[in-house]
Design a protein around this nucleic acid. Structure first.
Length: 467
RNA sequence: GACCCCAUCGUCUAGAGGCCUAGGACGUCACCCUUUCACGGUGAAGACACGGGUUCGACUCCCGUUGGGGUCGCCA
């Protein structure tokens, strides 16, 4: 049997981070088993589904590299098939018409809540003669759920979970307007798509029991279920926006690399011994449901940042430069010039050592696109004392006398000067850094010098020396 | 409230009854490296929620308590 998994988001918003992890697990599981990973858009809620949200889901998945197999299935397009399936249950006596109005149901629920009883549909139309139907009311179709016994799911993550059937009420499978509801659509689609493993958030665990009964009623094989714990915020509560419940596009904009985010998401709720840095190839080889944890994990930006830093440092300079260019251009407020693109690449080895995100990296590279005369930040301004300015003049002379403009040569010259003046290197390096970058924190100052080039460097030093 | 799930350092986790004096990673702190910041290196602090069992022996099994989460829609 070949494995078939699916990711089935509803396009009512962006692709959020929890959904991305669900997609990742499905993708990995299918790839691990050499199976298929399908994408289904659950757009049966016509009010809330939007094309923009569908595009956001596609974009997010593509950016994360979670390519799906075959065509995308749109659930709404299969409404007729779902209605036919409901009719089949009706014909078989496994479903019935319910003439309750929404108001009536709401009253029923309120009453139950007030009396402390379980809030469930009481089955009042289950065995009632349809002849008693009130005139003018269009009925919804309800599934006739078993009332005795128990249902057990051998969940691949949660283990054996049993629920007494009396806990399950008769769910609506077809609305009064003839459109299918979620639980029916999911079962019919998963069956028709040949899905063998349903891997999803554990907020669906209770649905699984209803869905299992539907599979049984249809006489279909029940797929394997794997309900993965949800991702929580740092406080253990539901993930809020402030805490990371953002669309994956937001992570892209914050400057995270897709491979780093993938690695982070993978380790959130899944582990392989003490391994932390796991390539996608390795993940495909290792990923099974056996090591998916059962307790909810909290989202931690600090760890994501650390991971992203590691992935950036491991990236090829050229690839990282391409990824960083939009961020630097945004910071400059204009397109980058060819010379600036070249400088970015030249500076990349030292730039990528000291950033956790592309946003940070671009910020650290701001000196590359700054225009003279530089604005000095407060700390840099303090470096440029009269003494320091005078020293910058002498540094400029020493540098100007150089033939060649490599970092090593510049360093040797400045070191020699420091020694001649009986000063520690830092005494010269810090003002120099301030003059060249406008800040007191930057990549190694001689690298900066080399990347900026002779002309620009000397001009910036002269600017600072002048005061 | 009912039903279901969960519970190891602050966080992510390893741990399948003796391997645990509970391991790794992030974060924190200290030191080293050093022209700044990083990176890197070394080291430190830091957890089995609680109470009962079962067992020669429980982080590991069972029960309960507490705490957290999920679900109870003609939403998905």
């Amino acid at each position: 049997m070949t494995v078939v998994t699916r990711f089935a988001p509803s396009p009512t918003g962006y692709l959020h981070i929890g959904g991305a992890r669900t997609a990742l697990f499905n993708w990995l599981f299918a790839r691990h088993h050499g199976g298929r990973y399908l994408l289904r858009i659950e757009d049966t809620d016509r009010q809330r589904s939007t094309d923009a949200a569908i595009e956001a889901i596609f974009d997010g998945l593509r950016w994360l590299g979670l390519d799906w197999d075959g065509e995308v299935t749109y659930q709404f397009a299969r409404a007729d098939r779902h209605a036919a399936a409901a009719q089949r249950l009706l014909d078989a006596g496994r479903a019935y018409r319910c003439y309750c109005t929404p108001e009536e149901l709401e009253t029923m629920r309120e009453q139950a809540r007030k009396e402390g009883r379980p809030v469930r549909y009481d089955g009042r139309w289950r065995d009632r003669d349809p002849k008693e139907a009130p005139p003018g009311v269009r009925p919804a179709i309800r599934f006739k759920a078993p009332r005795e016994g128990a249902s057990t799911i051998a969940d691949r993550v949660q283990g054996e979970v049993t629920v007494q059937n009396e806990q399950l009420d008769d769910l609506i499978i077809l609305r009064a307007d003839g459109t299918p509801t979620y639980n029916l659509s999911v079962v019919v689609d998963d069956h028709d798509m040949g899905v063998t493993h349903v891997i999803r958030g554990d907020d669906h665990l209770t649905n699984a029991f209803r869905q299992m009964q539907l599979y049984l009623a249809f006489g279909w094989d029940v797929p394997e279920f794997a309900h993965v714990p949800l991702i929580h915020g740092p406080d253990g509560a539901k993930l809020s926006k402030r805490h990371g419940a953002l669309g994956v596009d937001a992570y892209r904009e914050m400057g995270y690399l897709p491979e780093a985010l993938r690695n982070y998401l993978l380790r959130l709720g899944w582990s392989h011994g003490d391994d932390e840095i796991i390539s996608t190839e390795q993940a495909i080889e290792w990923f099974t449901l056996d090591h998916v944890g059962r307790s909810p994990a909290r989202f931690d930006f600090a760890k994501l940042g650390n991971l992203n830093g590691i992935y950036m440092r491991r990236s090829e300079d050229e690839a990282l430069a391409r990824a960083a260019e939009p961020f630097l251009a945004r910071l400059a407020g204009r397109a980058l010039e060819a010379s600036e693109q070249a400088m970015l690449r030249a500076a990349m080895p030292s730039l990528k050592e000291r950033a956790k995100t592309l946003v940070e990296l671009a910020d650290n590279a701001a000196f590359l696109v700054a225009r003279r005369p530089l604005a000095y930040d407060a700390a840099a301004g303090q470096q440029l004392t009269p003494d320091a300015r005078a020293r910058l003049g002498r540094i400029a002379s020493a540098l100007a006398a150089l033939d060649g403009w490599e970092a090593a040569k510049a360093e040797a010259a400045v070191r020699a000067l420091a020694e001649a003046e009986g000063e520690k290197l830092g005494k010269l390096a810090q003002p120099l850094r301030a003059a060249l970058t406008g800040r007191t924190v930057s990549p190694p100052v001689f690298d900066v010098l080399a990347v900026l080039g002779r002309e620009e460097s000397l001009a910036r030093i002269a600017d600072a020396a002048k005061g």
